[in-house]
Every structure is written in C-alpha cells, then in structure tokens.
Design a protein around this nucleic acid. Structure first.
Length: 297
DNA sequence: GAGTTTGAAACT
DNA sequence: CAGTTTCAAACTC
C-alpha cells in the first residue's frame, strides 16, 4: 500500500470526535513503512516516536507506559513537515495549537502529497527512530533505574546537552547512546556519573552539574571548532562567571579542564588533540563504550 | 509568558 | 556528504 494514499479522510468524520481513527492512521503509516505499530501491538518493543516527546521532567524518564499524544504548536509549513510531531507520527492534529494547520480531513490531498514528498526524500521518515531490543526494558543495577534497551536508528547529534536533556532523542527514549550517535561530550553511556546523577538526589543540583559539564565540554573541546565563535548570551556569560570555566578564552584548553569534563580516556589523557580525535565520529564511537570516568588521572 | 538554547529536519 | 538554515520543543528566567 502506498503510504501517500493513506486516507483517513474516507471516514469523513470529525477527527476530534474519533480519536481511534487517528490511531488507525498512525498504524497505517507504520505498517506501510514495514513496522508494527505500538498502538496496535500492545506488547511491541518498538518505542513510539511520540512517546519520546512526552512532557516529563528530565529526570522523569519514560517508564514504558502509554503516553498521551502531544499537542504540537507548529507555525510554519501547515504541519506538513516532520518538524510537526503529529505529522511525523502519522496523526492528525488534535487539540493542537498549530497555525494554519493542513493536517486534517479538509486538506487531505495536500497532506497526502506532503507524505509522499517526505517519503521520496527519506524512505524511513515515518519509521520509529528507536529500534528496541527484544528484551525490552531492564533494570540498571548500578543506578537503580529502568533503562530501555534500544538503539536510535540514526543516532543523536547532540553537541551541548551531553545527551542528558530532552533535546537528545536518545535521552527522550531513555536509551543509551550507541555507535550510531555522533554526539559530542556524551554523558549517556553505561557508568556515566552524570547520567546516574539524574536518578539520584536533587534535580536542580544535578542539572547544574550537567550544565557545567556541557558548558565545559563546549568551550573546551569544541573551542577550536565553529562553536568557539558562536554568540555568547548573557545567560551563558553569567554561567561562565559562576562556574569559573576556561570559557573566557576558547583558545585556552587546559588539560585539567578537559579532564574535568571528559568521559573519554583518549580525551583526558591526550589533551585537546586527543579530545578532538575522540569527538570525531570514529574514535568517539569506539571509546564511548570503553572509556570510563575512572580513567581520569 | 517571553526569551533563549538546543538539535532534528530541511535546505544548499 | 558537509555545512548552513529553519523550525519547534525544551528550557530558563
């Protein structure tokens, strides 16, 4: 079946009164994309994209329970691009705050064209981003948390969040970063102190800790990249003052500073040069699973 | 609630 | 494929 021909409009009913149809729509897209759909397979191990975006505090990780559909707030593209979460998940917008939304029965033809165009550029556009393992969630003994066993199909590309905030899709899915990820300064690996800190103790303190690490990561290791010249907001300036980081001069990369923020043995032992190597895709990937904070001198 | 930051998606 | 821009969500104040 052609995904672009997906036509809930045939129901010719008000979608706001027929929420189950939206589920069928989502299921149709997933089936067309070669995936079972979580809404139709209750025990499915596939993590549904919209569940990744559930409104939770960063330390309220997904527990595998069904999540409410999120209400999007799109202002551009009439909700017909993947920026729109409803579009990406195959849902009609329902009680969303979108501006000029075309994702409803009235504009079905337009929406269908957009689905086709999206699929044309990316056949996997409507596939779930998270490929869960067959074992589902497991308890992480070291942190006492429930961690989903899965892998982001494309991997995240986080640069500043340390993969410990909801900006990170791996974080949202409650999975560890994998070799697919091209993130920088990743703290979401097994044994990460920062990651474990999220599950214990005070949220604000933890986030301050994480922010410090992320900030230091950026100003240190990424300092020689394009980020060094990025505009610095008042907020960030104040953070730098408070944290006393080396961020004032991005060209200064003290080894000690790097050691403080690194999660990677290459990084801390070899200084900036090693850091940059590690942040490059291949070495960072290879060291992520093996380097541990305790490697720091 | 406004403004900022972030990273995925889209574009070049 | 890499770099840049756009976008909406996450986040801070």
């Amino acid at each position: 079946m052609d995904v672009a021909s997906w036509s809930p409009a045939a129901a010719s009913v008000n979608q706001r009164q027929q929420p189950q149809i939206k589920q069928q729509v989502a299921a149709t897209i997933s089936v067309a994309a070669g995936q079972s759909h979580p809404l139709t397979t209750a025990s499915s191990s596939v993590v549904k994209p919209e569940s990744l975006k559930a409104k939770t505090r960063p330390n309220e990780l997904n527990d595998g329970a069904p999540k409410k559909q999120k209400h999007s707030n799109c202002k551009h593209f009439r909700c017909l691009k993947l920026y729109c979460e409803c579009f990406a998940s195959g849902m009609y917008c329902d009680e969303c705050n979108c501006v000029n939304c075309y994702k409803n029965v009235e504009y079905e033809a337009v929406r269908r064209d957009s689905v086709g165009a999206t699929l044309k550029s990316n056949l996997n556009a409507f596939r779930p981003k998270i490929n869960s393992s067959s074992h589902g969630a497991k308890d992480n003994k070291e942190a006492g948390e429930v961690l989903m066993l899965g892998k982001h199909s494309k991997g995240c590309h986080c640069k500043r969040s340390g993969c410990l905030r909801k900006y990170c899709e791996c974080f949202q899915a409650n999975i560890l970063c994998s070799e697919s990820c091209k993130c920088m300064g990743c703290k979401k690996f097994k044994g990460s102190e920062e990651r474990q800190a999220l599950f214990h103790g005070d949220y604000a303190n933890n986030m301050a800790y994480i922010q410090q690490a992320a900030n230091a990561t950026t100003t240190g290791a990424i300092g020689s990249s394009g980020y060094a010249s990025a505009p610095v907001s008042k907020k960030r300036k104040s953070q730098e003052l408070l944290l006393g980081s080396t961020a004032k001069d991005p060209s200064v990369h003290s080894l000690g500073h790097l050691q403080q923020v690194s999660v990677c043995g290459h990084y801390s032992k070899a200084g900036l040069e090693g850091a940059l190597l590690c942040f490059g895709s291949s070495i960072q990937r290879s060291c992520k699973d093996t380097c541990r904070p305790e490697k720091f001198d």
